[in-house]
Design a protein around this nucleic acid. Structure first.
Length: 570
RNA sequence: GCGCGUGUAGCUCAGUUGGAUAGAGCGUCGCCCUCCGGAGGCGAAGGUCGCAGGUUCGAAUCCUGCCACGCGCGCCA
């Protein structure tokens, strides 16, 4: 039992003793100001109403009933409107460092429990162009969320979904074809809705080199299909290289086109009760019709998504004069059925907030199926836009003209670690300004440099002393040596690491950890400047080496969770 | 018009799910220094938490109404 758990248990006992019942919810937290002690509780204030007594009076009463010697508490005092502040015996607090040393690389990590697997879907960019800065944010967020869950004992499968069947791909193929015609002597005419980037021309040129006879076949349907496949393959290859450079790897790539394949319902969407040879999208439509969730109007088939919180009903199947095919919405629902049927009882989708309109729709579709998929399935983590600042001004993004900042650009400019950190520093809900100049600066103004430097400094101490940090397990250390305020504050921060990871995972918010690492790095630097480790008398040096080792472990583990390296020297 | 999100120091942003005097980095100003890495260290100034109400012991946080900005609202994906 940690000190905090012991205090919590004692508070619960004391509350019962003064007549508050034995199911009180005890909140114990770090005080806003370290001067208030190591832990604080507002318990007396929350009990005031039920007990009809003054908070400070209750606080006094609670303290009188507390037996805190075993919890390492040196003092418990009433403060402010009725807070109870606890001060730990310094030697007891410092003992938390021993935990860190003992658990080492596993400190903050919860072993996998149960046999469930969560699927995290992210990036899912159409193969119609390079990955831009928005996809980069998704890549960083999705991977960090996956890592957070893994550290919290959840098995995770990372998935990339390709919309490889829709109109966008047709536009891509037609755009490449336009360049091929141009190479054959025709004027360049990018079709309506087509793509304008230089990469389209490059794809066409490469294709032309491989097919010297192309000019004669432009109007041949089989040839056009060949162009489409070539373009998709080329762009997928480009995206994969970008992701590789970013250090993001997926377990599965799910193709939208597979949902249209005959027999796909039986293999991937069994809960719909598929018959032989039926595709997943057909089975989805059939199940929705059978559930009575649809109606026909103007020759089209609508789904009553309004019955599940959407603001208007959605077309599932277009009328005959519009082509009679399914809207994007049907494969989207079918795709999520396959997640459920593949055994993923938890699904998290990381997407740009421009997709927020689809959230209610997909969930409505899944609900309407009536196959037992819960209401909040899947979870969504939506993020706002990214703007890039360089040389003091915003780098303009013009997708239309085909010029925009790509993930590859950012990686080339500032490196993988800085790109990841800058993406993860802000919560997804807020608009992100990516300051390229700051990200590449080699000084402690740069948050990622500051954090990595703190780690490198800890490594440097051991290097300088000719010591192997891995041999420090805290045994024989006199923890009472660590009594300076800067040391106790640092210790508290290090000990909190597992809680920070757990909460960041619970809320799917990696920025909490990014912020924690920056704050902790600040404490490390402050301690480092104020208190020398090497050259002290033996007991003090040993204790400080243990603390340095613990700081090194926490920084390294924290960076690991975010997918960032922890160098031993900068 | 409707929906989602955002609005906190000059700038970029946190704020532990309702707690104490609202924090960090940068920028500004002042002082110090070259010691395990000086590309530093210490300190100060700087905020009507968009505005107005409400809820209660207590609100940046919850509720309501406005204002501003972003995104979305197609038989596009």
């Amino acid at each position: 039992m940690t000190g905090a758990d012991a205090i919590r248990a004692e508070l619960r006992r004391a509350a019962a003793a003064i007549g508050a019942g034995d199911d009180v919810d005890v909140v114990l937290q770090r005080p806003s100001d370290p001067a208030f002690g190591d832990w604080t509780t507002n318990l007396a204030m929350t009990l005031a109403r039920a007990l009809r007594r003054k908070p400070r009076e209750i606080a006094d009463d609670l303290i009188a009933h507390l037996q805190l010697a075993d919890a390492g508490v040196r003092a418990a005092e009433v403060a402010g409107a009725g807070f109870i502040n606890f001060r730990l015996d310094p030697a007891f607090a410092a003992r938390g460092v021993a935990d860190v040393l003992r658990q080492d690389a596993a400190f903050g990590r919860v072993p996998p429990a149960g046999d469930g697997v969560a699927v995290v879907e992210f990036v899912s960019a159409n193969p119609t162009g390079p990955l831009h800065v928005g996809h980069g944010r998704q890549a960083a967020l999705g991977d960090a969320i996956s890592r957070l869950l893994e550290w919290s004992g959840v098995r995770v499968s990372r998935e990339f979904y390709y919309n490889d069947g829709g109109a966008q791909i047709a536009n891509l193929a037609r755009s490449v074809l336009a360049h091929l015609r141009h190479l054959g002597g025709a004027a360049l005419e990018i079709p309506e809705g087509g793509y304008h980037g230089d990469y389209i021309r490059e794809i066409a040129e490469r294709f032309a080199e491989e097919h010297p006879d192309h000019a004669a076949r432009h109007d041949d349907a089989a040839f056009q299909e060949e162009v489409r496949r070539h373009a998709v393959a080329a762009l997928r290859q480009e995206q994969n290289l970008d992701l590789q450079a970013f250090g993001v790897a997926f377990d599965t790539y799910y193709l939208e086109s597979s949902l249209y394949a005959p027999g796909s319902a039986a293999s991937a969407a069994r809960s719909l009760g598929a018959s032989d040879g039926e595709s997943a999208v057909d089975a989805t439509v059939r199940a929705l019709v059978r559930a009575g969730a649809t109606y026909e109007q103007d020759g089209a088939l609508f789904l009553r998504t309004t019955a599940y919180g959407d603001d208007k009903d959605r077309v599932m199947k277009r009328s005959a004069e519009k082509g009679g095919d399914y809207t994007y919405f049907v494969p989207d629902v079918a795709y999520h059925v396959t997640k459920w049927d593949r055994g993923f009882r938890r699904a998290i989708n990381v997407q740009g907030s421009d997709h927020h309109g689809t959230v209610a729709r997909v969930r409505a579709g899944l609900q309407a199926l009536g196959v037992g998929i819960p209401q909040g399935y899947p979870d969504y983590v939506l993020h706002q836009m990214v703007t890039v600042m360089r040389g003091g001004e915003e780098v303009k993004i013009s997708k239309r003209a085909g010029s925009y900042v790509t993930v590859r650009d950012l990686l080339d400019w500032v490196g993988r670690d800085a790109v990841r950190y800058f993406y993860l520093q802000r919560k997804g809900d807020s608009h992100l300004v990516f300051d390229v100049d700051l990200a590449r600066s080699q000084s402690e103004e740069n948050p990622i440099y500051r954090i990595q430097m703190a780690h490198a400094r800890m490594s440097g101490i051991f290097r300088q002393g000719g010591l192997d940090p891995a041999t420090f397990d805290g045994s024989g250390v006199d923890w009472a040596q660590l009594a300076a305020p800067a040391e106790l504050e640092l210790i508290n921060a290090l000990v909190d690491f597992p809680r920070v990871v757990a909460q960041a995972a619970e809320h799917l918010e990696p920025h909490r950890l990014a912020q924690y690492l920056l704050d902790t790095a600040g404490l490390v630097h402050g301690w480092y400047h104020k208190h020398h480790v090497l050259g002290q008398e033996a007991p003090l040096q040993e204790a400080r080496l243990a603390l340095a080792r613990a700081a090194q472990i926490v920084l390294r583990n924290g960076l690991e969770v975010l997918g960032i390296s922890a160098p031993d020297r900068m």
